[in-house]
Lab assay of single mutants.
Amino acid sequence: KKPMSASALFVQDHRPQFLIENPKTSLEDATLQIEELWKTLSEEEKLKYEEKATKDLERYNSQMKR
């Protein structure tokens, strides 16, 4: 599977709780709203997800070399 971006990892982490809190929201709308939240994060908060994305890219690259 392809590597995930930092923002995609953020959405993946936050979507389940968002949908619990907003059960009538469609998956598409939830994703859009969480992506807007991503844009408001500080660089420090984004760094955690950027590090995860880097590790996921390394995983992807090692799988492609096999």
Rank of each mutant, 00 (worst) to 15 (best):
R15G: 02
T54Q: 10
W38T: 04
T25I: 01
K39C: 08
E58A: 10
K48C: 14
A53I: 00
L9W: 05
T54L: 13
Q63G: 11
Q33E: 09
S5V: 04
E58W: 03
K65I: 06
Q12T: 02
E51T: 12
E35K: 06
T54C: 08
D56E: 15
T31V: 03
K65W: 02
F10R: 01
S5T: 15
M64R: 09
D56S: 13
L57Q: 10
A6V: 02
K39V: 03
M4Y: 11
K55D: 12
E51S: 08
Y49S: 01
F10V: 00
S26D: 10
L41S: 12
E35F: 06
M4I: 05
Y49F: 00
S5Y: 01
D13Y: 03
E51D: 12
T25A: 14
S62P: 09
K55C: 11
L27E: 02
Y60W: 10
L32V: 10
L47Y: 07
E45T: 07
L47W: 09
Y60D: 14
K2V: 07
N61D: 09
N61T: 13
R15E: 03
L27A: 09
R15Q: 04
I20T: 02
S42K: 12
Y60T: 13
Q63R: 08
L32Q: 09
R15V: 14
Q63D: 15
K46P: 00
K1R: 07
S7T: 10
A8R: 10
S62Q: 13
W38H: 14
T31I: 03
L32Y: 06
F10Y: 15
N61L: 04
S5R: 05
E43L: 12
L41R: 07
D56P: 03
S42R: 06
A53Q: 02
E45G: 06
D56N: 05
S62R: 11
Y49T: 01
A6I: 00
K52R: 13
L47A: 15
E58M: 08
T54V: 10
E44I: 04
A53T: 04
L57I: 09
L37I: 04
S62L: 12
E51N: 12
E35M: 13
T25K: 05
K65F: 06
S7L: 11
Q17H: 01
T31G: 05
Q63K: 14
L27R: 07
L32H: 07
Q63S: 07
L37H: 13
A6Y: 00
E35T: 07
R59H: 11
E45Q: 09
T54S: 14
K52F: 02
S42P: 12
M64F: 11
A53R: 05
L41I: 07
R59F: 11
Y60V: 11
P16C: 04
F10C: 00
E51R: 12
K52P: 04
S42C: 06
L37G: 08
K46Q: 10
T54F: 06
K65Q: 14
A53G: 02
E44V: 10
T25W: 02
R59I: 15
W38L: 00
K48Q: 08
A6C: 05
R15H: 06
P16L: 03
R59C: 10
Y49K: 02
L57G: 09
K65A: 14
K65L: 14
D29G: 12
R59W: 09
N61S: 11
Y49M: 00
K2N: 02
S5M: 03
L57K: 09
A6E: 01
E43I: 09
L41T: 13
Y49D: 01
K46V: 03
R66L: 14
T31F: 05
K2W: 00
E43K: 06
L47R: 11
Y49E: 00
Y60G: 12
T54M: 08
A8L: 05
Q12G: 02
P3K: 04
K46Y: 00
N61K: 14
R66T: 14
S26H: 04
E44W: 03
E44S: 12
R59G: 07
D13N: 02
E51H: 09
Q63E: 13
R66N: 14
P16S: 07
L37E: 04
E45L: 06
P16K: 08
Y60Q: 11
A6M: 01
S7G: 09
K48R: 09
P16H: 00
K52Y: 05
M4S: 13
A6Q: 02
L9K: 13
E44Q: 09
Q63I: 04
K55Q: 05
M4G: 07
A30L: 01
S62Y: 10
K55F: 01
E44H: 12
M4K: 14
Y49Q: 02
S42H: 05
P3Q: 00
R59A: 14
L32S: 08
A6T: 01
S62F: 12
P16I: 06
A6L: 02
P3T: 14
K39I: 02
E35V: 02
E43Q: 14
K55P: 04
K65H: 04
R59T: 12
A53H: 05
S26W: 00
D56M: 06
L27V: 09
K52G: 07
R66K: 09
K46F: 00
A6R: 01
E35P: 09
S62K: 14
R15F: 14
S62W: 11
L9N: 03
T40D: 10
D56Q: 08
E45R: 07
Y49W: 13
L41V: 13
R66V: 15
K55W: 08
T25E: 08
E43T: 14
S62T: 06
R59P: 10
S7P: 15
P16M: 03
Y49N: 01
Q33A: 12
E43Y: 10
W38V: 02
F10S: 03
A53L: 03
E45A: 06
M4N: 08
E58N: 05
T25S: 03
L57V: 10
R66A: 15
L57H: 10
E51K: 08
S42M: 00
L41N: 02
S5A: 06
K1C: 15
L37Y: 03
K52W: 04
E45D: 09
W38F: 05
E35Q: 03
D56C: 08
L27G: 05
S26Q: 05
Q12V: 03
S62M: 10
K65N: 08
A53F: 07
S5G: 13
L32K: 13
E44F: 05
K2E: 03
K2C: 11
E51M: 09
K65M: 06
P16T: 08
T40P: 02
L41E: 05
L57W: 10
K52Q: 13
K2L: 11
E58L: 12
E58C: 08
M4E: 13
A30E: 03
A53P: 04
K1E: 13
A53N: 04
M64C: 07
L41P: 01
E51Q: 13
F18L: 09
Y60K: 12
E44A: 11
K55I: 13
Y49I: 00
L9A: 01
S7D: 14
R15C: 01
F10W: 06
S26R: 05
K48P: 11
Y60R: 12
M4R: 10
K52D: 04
L9C: 07
A30F: 01
K46T: 03
K55A: 15
R59N: 08
L32P: 04
T40L: 10
N61G: 07
A6W: 00
L47H: 14
R66I: 01
E44D: 11
E58D: 12
K55L: 12
W38E: 09
M64Q: 13
Q33N: 00
K46R: 12
T54A: 14
E45F: 02
A53M: 03
K2R: 04
E58T: 08
W38G: 05
T54Y: 04
L37M: 05
S42L: 00
F10G: 00
A8P: 03
P3M: 04
L9T: 05
Q33W: 01
Q12A: 15
P16D: 15
F10K: 04
T40C: 15
N61E: 14
L9H: 09
E58K: 13
E45I: 11
T25M: 08
A30W: 01
K46D: 00
E44L: 05
D56R: 09
L57T: 07
K1G: 06
E43V: 13
S26M: 02
K1S: 02
A8S: 07
K65Y: 07
K48E: 07
P16R: 11
K46S: 01
K39W: 02
S26E: 05
K52M: 15
K46L: 01
M4W: 02
M4L: 13
Y49C: 01
E35G: 07
P16Q: 13
Y49V: 00
I20F: 01
Y49L: 00
A30H: 04
A6P: 04
K2G: 01
Q33V: 05
E58S: 10
E28D: 01
L9M: 08
K55G: 09
L37Q: 14
P16E: 11
T54K: 14
K52T: 05
R59V: 13
A6K: 04
S5K: 08
T40A: 05
F10D: 02
W38I: 00
F10A: 01
K52N: 05
K65V: 12
E43S: 13
K1V: 07
N61I: 03
K46C: 02
L32E: 09
L27M: 11
T25L: 10
S5D: 04
D56L: 09
L47K: 06
K55R: 11
L41D: 05
S26P: 07
S42I: 02
H14Y: 12
F18S: 03
E58P: 06
K39H: 07
S5I: 04
T40H: 11
Q63M: 10
L9S: 06
T40R: 09
Y49G: 01
K52H: 06
Y49R: 02
S7Q: 15
T40S: 09
F10H: 08
P3V: 15
S7V: 15
P16F: 00
N61W: 02
Q12R: 07
K65P: 14
N22S: 02
K1T: 04
T31R: 11
E51V: 11
T25N: 07
T25V: 15
V11I: 03
P16Y: 07
T40N: 11
Q33S: 06
E35L: 08
R59Y: 11
N61C: 02
L37K: 15
K1W: 01
K48F: 10
L47N: 15
R15T: 10
E21D: 03
E45W: 01
R15L: 13
S7M: 15
